[in-house]
């Protein structure tokens, strides 16, 4: 088995001064190049878990380790996110004023790349997700499926080690959902990056190699698919 990329140790997260407990002690290890689906009904705590794994939020208790190092001890967390983690969101979250090729370049500002290099990389990425014809379109001129492709290209901008997708097909019809999942799967296979998808859709979860089922803030099952 390859090295452990990310590990959660007794991760707990409560809100509203402890009155709402989203996570009640979660433990797991995810290895490099794994494709894991985190499934569960809404309100089960899976999105809170994803935000903690993506270093967007901190656990109330417990620790997350990335390559064996505690995330809590990382000094420059923004740089850590920029260099290691790519996000794909349910609502795409593209910047509405920027074209597709510009949106893909946004995360690259944190990398030591020239404008020409940024443009070249963004063009390549959009080609790889099948959008070479839509480079200069604004998000509002694109279909949901196309927007999510741009978001996937953007998540790959800085060549992250870990890709986190939060209900990536939630706003898409079944045909587009199928295409986006195939795209994520091929990205995972070609680039060998670790992919964690949060979903409540069994069709999406079936693409993964492993499924963590979350219920009431706890992992209730962890199985290979």
């Amino acid at each position: 088995m390859s090295d452990v990329l990310i590990e959660a140790r007794d991760v707990r997260r409560s809100f509203d001064e402890g009155r709402v407990q989203a996570l009640r002690g979660v433990d797991f290890r995810i290895h490099e190049s794994e494709f894991v689906a985190i499934v569960g009904p809404s309100g089960s705590g899976k999105s809170s878990l994803l935000q903690i794994l993506g270093a967007l939020d901190e656990p109330s208790e417990g620790e997350v380790f990335f390559h064996g190092k505690s995330v809590a001890e990382i000094h420059d967390i923004a740089r850590f996110r920029a260099e290691n983690i790519g996000f794909v969101f349910q609502s795409f979250h593209l910047i509405p004023t920027l074209t597709a090729v510009e949106n893909v370049q946004v995360p690259m500002f944190e990398m030591p790349w020239s404008p020409v290099e940024r443009q070249r990389r963004a063009t390549e990425l959009l080609k790889s997700v099948g959008l070479s014809e839509r480079m200069h379109h604004l998000p509002r001129k694109m279909s949901g499926g196309e927007r999510q492709r741009v978001a996937v290209a953007r998540s790959l901008a800085n060549e992250p080690k870990l890709l986190l997708a939060d209900e990536p097909t939630g706003n898409l019809d079944s045909a587009n959902a199928q295409r986006i999942m195939e795209l994520l799967q091929s990205v995972h296979q070609r680039r060998g990056m670790t992919l964690i998808v949060v979903t409540h859709d069994p069709n999406v979860a079936n693409f993964a190699d492993r499924m963590l089922r979350v219920l009431d803030g706890r992992v209730v099952s962890d199985a290979r698919t």
Partner: peptide, 15 residues
């Protein structure tokens, strides 16, 4: 919301 996205995709607060 958009600033949140920029932070999520790796922008530093400084930027």
């Amino acid at each position: 919301h958009e600033i949140g996205i920029l932070l999520a995709i790796g922008w530093r607060r400084r930027r």
